[in-house]
């Protein structure tokens, strides 16, 4: 059975959603959302567990349902397929417009599967998004827990890792003590909600720690924290130049670790309406030169000197 969907029409309506709340539910019905999930699932299934992509590409971190900020990223960099994108996960929870966010991204994935790439974040796991906002939003706006379940089926097929130009390894959370070769990442099983413990859990949950050597228990209660020595060792062993990850809010939207061998990228400015952080995206050009674009928490730029 193959589901059919008018992606252009759905995208058009999603992009016209300018307000939080009711507008989406009157212009997009639940059946369309379910179909969108089903088609996106088949696209994820048709691509590798380790996404191997080439520059030029824009790498983006957490979005967390901040739909207008997602649109700012496209406004500033360009829309697919003119620009290639790799997102590092955490599209839902915490923000106010989870469904618009994840569905627009699924539409881009369906329409431009070779220009638009999405990794899985820890918030694309049912145990987390059941509690931190996504379940509540599906229930409140569409009165449907079935819709939420269908999203989980699609999330289970999402890849956990990306490799850009063979030199930049990307994941949502961090490294794993079990990671020895890239082939392990190529062979990660799907569909799956990664069991704890596993390489998959570490790729979703691990954090770097400036004050740690080697591996230690993560205070989040899942996976590990790792030190700069681990990053240097992994880069050497896998013959890569950089590890790009998201998972943690950082003040300027990006932050280096281990002398530029690892970078955290966070793309939700004014996160949760509580932090005053900027967001950032990392641009990798065709010559493998990296720059960062920053997005201030206040989107209006009316001030002048």
């Amino acid at each position: 059975m193959t589901a059919t969907i008018d992606v252009d029409n759905l995208m058009s309506r999603l992009l016209n959603v300018g307000m939080s709340g009711g507008r989406l539910t009157t212009s997009v019905n639940e059946q369309e959302l379910q179909t969108c999930c089903a088609v996106a699932k088949s696209v994820f299934a048709s691509q590798a567990s380790l996404l191997e992509v080439e520059p030029p590409i824009i790498v983006c971190g957490d979005i967390h349902g901040q739909y207008s900020d997602l649109l700012r990223i496209f406004d500033k960099n360009g829309f697919p397929p003119d620009i290639n994108f790799l997102f590092l996960g955490d599209y839902v929870d915490r923000g106010r417009q989870n469904i618009e966010t994840i569905c627009l991204m699924f539409c881009f994935k369906i329409k431009y599967p070779e220009n638009f790439f999405m990794l899985r974040g820890n918030h694309e796991c049912p145990a987390i998004n059941r509690v931190y906002g996504f379940y509540e939003e599906c229930n409140r706006r569409y009165k449907s827990t079935r819709l939420w379940s269908i999203f989980q089926d699609t999330f289970n097929w999402m890849p956990l890792c990306g490799l850009i130009g063979s030199r930049i390894l990307c994941m949502h959370g961090g490294l794993s003590p079990h990671l020895q070769t890239l082939d392990q990442l190529r062979q990660l099983p799907r569909p799956q909600d990664p069991p704890n413990p596993s390489i998959g859990i570490d790729l979703l949950w691990a954090d770097p720690d400036q004050w740690v050597k080697g591996w230690q228990a993560n205070t989040r209660g899942v996976s590990y924290v790792f030190g700069q020595d681990v990053v240097a060792d992994v880069c050497s062993r896998l013959d890569i130049d950089l590890v790009a990850r998201a998972h943690q809010v950082v003040q300027d939207g990006y932050e280096f670790f281990a002398s530029k061998k690892m970078v955290t990228i966070f793309s939700a400015p004014h996160y949760c309406g509580q932090f005053d952080n900027s967001a950032a995206t990392m641009k990798v050009d065709e010559n493998m030169v990296c720059t960062f674009v920053m997005y201030k928490p206040t989107p209006k730029s009316l001030r002048k000197g």
């Binding site: 130049d241 280096f256 010559n287 493998m288 990296c290």
Partner: peptide, 19 residues
């Protein structure tokens, strides 16, 4: 044989200053 990664000059200089 893949091209090595580099950071733009302003990124490198700010990063070294921060460290």
């Amino acid at each position: 044989r893949r091209q090595r990664l580099h950071f733009a000059a302003e990124v490198e200089l700010l990063e070294a200053t921060c460290r």
